[in-house]
Design a protein around this nucleic acid. Sequence first.
DNA 1: GTGCAGATGTCAATATTTTAACAACCGAAA
DNA 2: TTTCGGTTGTTAAAATATTGACATCTGCAC
Lengths: 210, 210
Amino acid sequence: MSKQGNISVSVIRRLPRYYRFLGELSDAGISKISSRELAEKMRLTASQIRQDLNCFGGFGQQGYGYNVNELRQEIGHILGVDSRKKVILIGAGNLGTALAMHIDFEKSGCRLIGIFDSNKNIEGQELAGVKITDVARLEQFCNAEQPDIAVLCTPKDVTKDLVKRLTGVNVRSFWNFSHYDINVDFDDIVVENVHLSDSLMILSYGVNNT
Amino acid sequence: MSKQGNISVSVIRRLPRYYRFLGELSDAGISKISSRELAEKMRLTASQIRQDLNCFGGFGQQGYGYNVNELRQEIGHILGVDSRKKVILIGAGNLGTALAMHIDFEKSGCRLIGIFDSNKNIEGQELAGVKITDVARLEQFCNAEQPDIAVLCTPKDVTKDLVKRLTGVNVRSFWNFSHYDINVDFDDIVVENVHLSDSLMILSYGVNNT
DNA sequence: GTGCAGATGTCAATATTTTAACAACCGAAA
DNA sequence: TTTCGGTTGTTAAAATATTGACATCTGCAC
C-alpha cells in the first residue's frame, strides 16, 4: 500500500466524504462493499472511486470488493485522523461558540486546547470544557503549547494581524471563518478559507436556474 | 450583456468570491480595476478572470479595465443577491443559533422568515428578530409563506424525513449542515451540503504534507 | 478442479478546466 | 492626427479530471 506520489487536491477533497460514508456503512454493520455499490450510494462513478482509492495503493481485493473498516481506517490515516492535532480557537462570539460546541474535534483528529477572545467579560468562562483566555496572552500560550491549527472566528479587520502574530509563534494551519481571505506567501502554511455566505449565494443562484 | 449559455459550476462557484473582493474594492473607494490587478489580489490568473467574466458578456472595456461597482452589481444580479429569497431555518441548537445570528442573510439576497425547533422549551423565543416555532407547524407555515430555501441544522437522523416534508410543501433549495448528505432525485431541487468537519480534515491533512 | 459471475487495478479515451497567445480596441500624449 | 502602452474578448493550446474499457483475479457452485 501507499503510493502517494503527488495526489491531486481534487482527490484529497473527496477523502473526507469517503470517510464519512464508510463510517455510516460500518455503523450499519456492513463489512464489505464494491465500488459499484459505493458509487451508487455516493452518487459517483465506480470508476472514479477505484481511481481515487488507487492513488494510495490497492485497498481492494479483486473479485471481492473493499473491506469497509479497513478502507475507512486507511483513509482516516491518510487524512491524519489519528494524529491528534492541537487546535486553538480565536473569537468566542456566536460562530466561535457554536463551532466549539458543535464540531467534534476528536472525530476529525484534533484536540481543542485553547479558546481566546478579546472580551474581558467572558474571560475565564468555559466552552466545551476549555477555558476562555484573553487574546493578549496568545503568544505566551502558543510558545508553551505549540498548537498546530488555529480556528479564526474573528471580525475581518483583526484577522490579518492575528495571522501575522500566529505565524510568528509557529502556527502553520488556519481554519478561517472570518470574512477575510487569508493569502500567505509561505508555502508551508495551509489555509482553509470557509466562507459560509458564499455557499448560500451559490444556493441562491441555483434557485433561479437549473 | 448576458450570454449565459450554460455556465460551468466551476465558474459559478467563483462568483461569490469575485463579489466579495469587488465589494472590498468598492468600499476602499476604488472605481476601476484591470484583470491583472484583480488577479494579483485574488491570487488567480488574469486570464481566468477574463474568461470567467466573459461567460456573462463583456463587462469590461478594452484598453481600460473593469468598472468596479458596475461589475459588482452585475455579478450580484447573476447570483440573485437582489432577489430577496425567503429562508427558513430548522434546528435552533448551537449551530442553528449561530447561523441565525452570524449570517447576514440580507447581504446574500435572503430574508430569514422562520425558525423551527422541536424543543418546546425554546418555543416563542426570538433569534435574530425571528420567533422560534414548533417544528410540528412547519407545513402549515410553509403552505402560507412559501419559503424558497431551508437551512437544516438538525441531527442527521431527522434530516432525511425533514427533506421529504419540505419538498412536499414545495421547498426546493436546501442549505444542509447536518451530517447527512442530501441526495434527491428531482433535478429541480438544489442542495448545498456543507460539511464543516470535512473542511477541518482536509486542513489536518495539509498539516503533514505539502 | 473447472467454470462463471462479478470484482479490482490500470491504461486509454474523453471531457473539462486552466493557461497562454494575440488581434482588436481605448485613451492619453505628442 | 498618430502613436503607443495597456487592456479586453476570444481563440487555441496545455494541463487536469473524469469516464470507459478490459485484462486479471477471486470466491463460490457444481
